[in-house]
Amino acid sequence: MPKSTEITIPVPNGPDGAGMPATLVRPDSPMGAGIVLVQEIFGRTAYMRKRAMDLAENGYTVVLPQVYWRIGIDDIPEDSPDALMVAVGHSQAVDWDQAVADIRTAITWLRADPESEHAVALVGFCFGGGLAYAALQGVRGLEHADALVSYYGSALPNLVDGPTVHAASLHHFGDADAFIPREAIDHIREVVEADGAEFHLWDDANHAFDNPTPELGLHDPRASREAWEVTLDWLAEHHPA
């Protein structure tokens, strides 16, 4: 059974010298490849922690950073009233460039972890799917992840025409996404496939189709199951544990 612990990752400019809180999940057998799991818009929810455990059960050492830490937020309960509106407000309060830098710091920290293999991938959902993509743009060296899996990255329409991502990548979108226009998804697909990415468009699936929270009304069990199988197979090929 993977073991989960709360850690603090040193950052160069934390408020009052503070570090970034994160959840570290180690697999049963250490020395697996690393994954920085980048939270969806609702933060480090039980759903995100479950996905961290899922990845660790497949042999990965996983770090789940608290992206909203600089504004004093960890998670927004997805079943709470106006959860989406509250989450959007928090995401807009985040300094995007600083959040990108924090994810790169998490990559560097995990790459230096003596109990992992020093190879690090990014897996991001929704807000985190876009943030993970941005963290790979225009960077080299220890901060650059070796692979990327992005689920319906909400910021990608504003990112894909920027610097090229120089890493193997996998993208999931639903063809019934209510938040990202279909023409924008088609453009994302055109750009990332030209860069060598693998792209999956899931029939009848909405945005956040992997999120099982009933109150959101977005979950698609078939797309969620099949996309996760694709993700694990893709990681096994491009970023083996």
Rank of each mutant, 00 (worst) to 15 (best):
E115G: 10
E115K: 10
E115T: 15
E115V: 11
E115Q: 14
E115N: 14
S116Q: 14
S116W: 06
E117W: 09
E117I: 03
E117D: 15
H118G: 13
H118W: 06
H118M: 08
A119Q: 12
A119Y: 11
A119F: 10
V120S: 08
A121N: 06
A121V: 03
A121D: 09
L122P: 09
L122I: 08
L122A: 15
V123W: 06
V123M: 11
V123C: 07
V123S: 04
F125W: 11
F125R: 00
F125M: 03
F125S: 03
C126L: 01
F127S: 01
F127L: 06
F127C: 03
F127M: 04
F127K: 00
G129T: 00
G129R: 00
G129V: 01
G129L: 00
G130T: 02
G130L: 01
G130K: 00
L131A: 12
A132F: 07
A132I: 06
A132S: 15
A132Y: 05
A132G: 15
Y133G: 01
Y133D: 04
Y133R: 00
A134H: 05
A134P: 05
A134F: 08
A134Y: 07
A134M: 06
A134D: 09
A135V: 04
A135N: 05
L136M: 14
L136V: 09
Q137P: 07
Q137H: 07
G138W: 11
G138E: 15
G138C: 13
V139I: 14
V139G: 09
V139M: 08
R140S: 13
R140D: 15
R140Q: 11
G141M: 08
G141Y: 11
L142F: 09
L142K: 09
L142I: 12
L142G: 07
L142E: 15
E143I: 00
E143A: 15
E143D: 11
H144Q: 14
A145F: 13
D146G: 14
